[in-house]
């Protein structure tokens, strides 16, 4: 447990110092989005990596958070912080309500149902033109502010988003090691066995679904205040798939793996740009090859690879 705390502090330090060498570079801006995606990936990983419940509609909660905050602050002039809390609670309540019927389903049926929720939400963003601006988007969303201090630069937003991300990470770490977390993993391994052992599997699944929706909604609120403009294309099926990919690449059921996945996938376009128009092919290939040869994601795969190649470095690599 002590090493866990140490790891977290080291990570905090890394987050704190990361923008310094980048001063003024646009990479700070990219890291802001890495932060948003980290929160999203973390939310999904709780559901998928720990409880083993697939969701292809995570973008719906992200979008509801973003549109909720966006509409309340730009149209109805709510205080952004109040809006963020109200929206996150409302989204969580919504998730709780649909969680019962949705999570009764398993495997590909669950995938299809969550996908359906995602598609319906996206259509709603597109069609409620009077409220959301429809496909041409919603602009004029204010930046977040504390008193007269406005989060209006990349650096300020970076600390804002990562502040939230760190809180979420801490929350997840504690959750994973709690009684609740152990229950979740039991469901993941065998739901029937977990039930027999007295875990209220159904309720727990809904609870973690709700939590994951809550976290995604917060990420949505942050995203809309950072961007100050949102449009429905950011909350479609592709986004849900991208989030899934982050977890697969980073590491299934690993808190830091989610962050790593978010970092890699958000930076990937930068790296792939050297491939010019071929980037989409490399992206697809990466997904297939990674899943076949590194099913645990980088967090588990890379240390394993290290161990095989250079036995000495094993310890270093395994610290994720």
């Amino acid at each position: 447990m002590k090493s866990d705390k140490l790891k977290f502090f080291a990570f905090c330090l890394a987050v704190l110092l990361a923008p310094l060498p980048l001063s003024g570079s646009y990479l700070t801006n990219v890291l802001v989005f890495v932060g948003v995606n980290s929160i999203l990936a973390l939310g999904l990983n709780l559901l998928l990596g720990f409880a083993g419940q697939i969701s292809l509609g995570q973008a719906a909660f992200f979008g509801l958070g973003a549109y909720g905050s966006g509409v309340l602050t730009s149209v109805y002039a709510f205080n952004p912080w109040v809006a963020m809390v109200v929206v996150a609670l409302a989204v969580a309540a919504f998730a709780f309500a649909i969680g019962f019927p949705v999570l009764r389903l398993k495997g590909h049926y669950l995938a299809m149902a969550t996908l359906g929720v995602g598609v319906i939400a996206n259509i709603a963003f597109n069609e409620t033109v009077d409220l959301t601006g429809g496909p041409s988007g919603l602009s004029g969303i204010p930046n977040l502010a504390i008193g007269s201090f406005t989060f209006d630069t990349d650096l300020k937003n970076y600390y804002l988003v990562w502040g939230f991300a760190l809180v979420m990470i801490l929350l997840s770490l504690n959750l994973v090691n709690s009684r609740f977390g152990r229950g979740l993993r039991a469901i993941h391994d065998s739901e029937v066995a977990a039930r027999v052992m007295g875990v209220n599997a159904r309720l727990m699944k809904v609870q973690v679904f709700t939590l994951s929706a809550f976290i995604s909604a917060i990420a949505g609120s942050l995203y809309c205040h950072v961007m100050t403009f949102i449009s429905p294309t950011s909350f479609g099926f592709n986004t849900s798939v991208e989030l899934l990919t982050m977890i697969v690449i980073g590491g299934f059921g690993s808190v830091y793996g989610s962050i790593l996945g978010a970092l890699l996938l958000t930076m990937l376009p930068e790296i792939l740009r050297t491939f010019n128009d071929y980037d989409i092919i490399v992206y697809g290939l990466l997904l297939v090859v990674m899943t076949i040869y590194m099913p645990g994601g980088l967090v588990k795969g890379v240390p394993a690879l290290f161990r095989r190649l250079t036995p000495k470095k094993a310890k270093e690599g395994a610290n994720a």
Binding site: I54, L244, V248, I280, I281, Y283, G284, L285, T291
Partner: peptide
């Protein structure tokens, strides 16, 4: 796992499309 298969086939679809 079913999930790994879902991701592989999604990856393959991106590849073919590209």
């Amino acid at each position: 796992t079913p999930l790994a298969l879902i991701i592989i086939t999604i990856g393959a679809s991106i590849l073919i499309r590209g």
